[in-house]
Every structure is written in C-alpha cells, then in structure tokens.
Computed example of a mutant assay.
Amino acid sequence: MAGATGYIGSAVAERLAEQGHEVVALVRPKAGETRAVPGAAEVRYGDLADPASLAGAAADVDVVVHATAPSGDEAVELAAIDALLAGGAKLVYTSGIWLLGAGTSDEDSAPDPIPLVRFRVAVERRVLGAGGVVVRPGIVYGRGGGIPALLVAKAAEHGRGRYVSAAGQEPAWPTVHVDDLADLYVAVVERGEPGAVFHAVGEEAVPLGAVAEAAAEAAGVTGGGVEAWPVGEASRDLGAAFAEALALRQTVSAARTRKELGWTPSRPGLVADLAGGSY
C-alpha cells in the first residue's frame, strides 16, 4: 500500500488489517531508517518519484492501493502508475471529486477538472485501461484532520468563520468521513470490478456557510459570525489553484457505488463532527 502513513492511507491500512488483510506498506526510504507502520505486516521502501524503486516494492502482492499525496506532475504520476501495474496486481487509485469540476455529477459523468487536478484525467485513463479501479473521495474529514482542519485554523486566526467564495457564491462540498472512506476501500479491494469508478461521498453537497460556522465553534470562537473570503484574496494566502478548488460548488452522487458495493456511510456528517467531534 502506497501512502500507508498518510491521513487517508493510515486509516485504510488500519481497516484492511482489521478485516484480515495482510498489509504491505510502501514508504519512502530514509538513510539509516527502519520503522514499523501501524496496521502493516511488512514495510517496503520505494519512492513514487523513482519508478525503478517500485518494481520490487510492489512485487508479490494481490492488490496495490495507491493513496499517496499527488505530485501534480502528470509524467511523474503516469510513470509511477506504470511501475505499480507492472507486477500484475489489481491497482486501486485514489483520485478525487475536484476532477469533476463544478455542478452536479455522478460516477458516469465526464471529467471537467479544475487546473489543480487536470493531470488526473490521464492518470485515471491509464489506470482504468489497465483494469484498475478508481476511487474519488469527497472532501475527507474526521480524526481532526483533512482540509476542514484548515477552516478551524483560519477561524482561530481571524476570530470568525471563513470560507473561500468565488463571485459571491457560497460553495458546497461533497464530503466523506475518513472512517467511512476506509470501509469503502475494503469493499473495493474485495469486490471492486476491474475498470470501475467509485465515488466516496457520504454527503453530496454541504453548504460552506454552515461548515465555517461549525469550524469557528471548534476553534472556540464565539460571536464573530461567518464571512466569505473572496477567492482572489484567499489566493494570496493559499495559492490560486487551491483557493479555486475550495470555492467550488459541487453536488456529487455516490448512488451507484453504494448499490454495487453495499457501502453505507454511518459516521457523523462534517458539520456535526466539527461542532462536537474530533476537531
């Protein structure tokens, strides 16, 4: 499993191990370092930026779960995918809902990516063409991490809830709790059909005003209200591409995923988790 020490990957590795799967963690090599990874039966070393290092690391496994942070470089990503596919294992690739762009989408919708994730169109095509599986998580939250933690930090910094807004429009985020996401990966590893796309979305469209208000509550900020943060201003702090992503208004369905895999998200929603949960 690539990314077994990350926010998403660690939850997935833990759940796979709990369900009786033997997890082999792929981690970046560091001089003179050996380490254990929670949930992993074995640790192997390789770097997705060095495809030659992946051949041995991905050998003799039945499924490769790719859950690392993306480099954003299409050539690097494709080379890594080709190396991970070379051993013949089923590949489960972690993409994301930003590839779908603004508006309403489901698993059959054509990609309409924002610039930040445009590289993923070619990567998904390569994975699916080789019989791999694509998982597109919504905005991941829970366990005090993910992008919502940024909203908590910004609320604490500015004394009020804040959300990035383009043209005065309130964004909406498709979301998924990290533990529900981990459950889905187990189902995909065990039953996901080759060439399939699955959406990991628990709530289809959560208004960001409510999320920002809950983030302020999590930060211990009271009485400050909620304000829209213009995307141009946010770009100076967060970078233009990331600010654009945060300002998206999306509604994303996972109806087919739920039906085909019997996946039923059950954890608290994003607003509830911010207001009284892990943050």
Rank of each mutant, 00 (worst) to 15 (best):
V65S: 07
H66C: 00
P70Y: 12
S71V: 06
G72Y: 06
D73Q: 13
E74R: 15
A75M: 07
A75E: 15
V76K: 05
V76Y: 00
E77F: 08
E77C: 07
A79D: 13
A80F: 00
I81R: 02
D82K: 06
A83I: 00
A83E: 00
A83W: 01
L84I: 00
L84A: 00
L85P: 03
G87D: 04
G87T: 08
A89H: 02
A89G: 01
A89D: 00
K90M: 12
L91Q: 03
V92M: 06
Y93T: 02
S95R: 11
G96H: 02
G96E: 02
G96V: 02
I97V: 15
W98I: 03
G101I: 06
G101R: 05
G101K: 07
A102P: 14
A102L: 08
G103Q: 14
D106K: 14
E107W: 12
D108R: 15
S109D: 06
S109W: 01
S109P: 00
S109F: 03
A110T: 14
D112V: 11
P113V: 03
P113H: 02
I114T: 14
R118E: 12
F119P: 06
R120M: 14
V121Q: 10
V123D: 11
R125T: 15
R126M: 09
V127F: 10
G131W: 05
G132K: 07
V133Y: 11
V134L: 03
V135I: 14
P137N: 04
P137H: 04
Y141E: 11
G142P: 13
R143I: 09
G144R: 07
L151C: 01
A153L: 09
A153T: 14
E157F: 05
R160I: 04
Y163S: 03
V164W: 05
S165Q: 07
S165N: 01
G168L: 05
G168E: 08
Q169P: 00
E170H: 06
P171W: 05
W173K: 04
P174A: 05
P174G: 03
T175W: 04
D179R: 15
D179A: 07
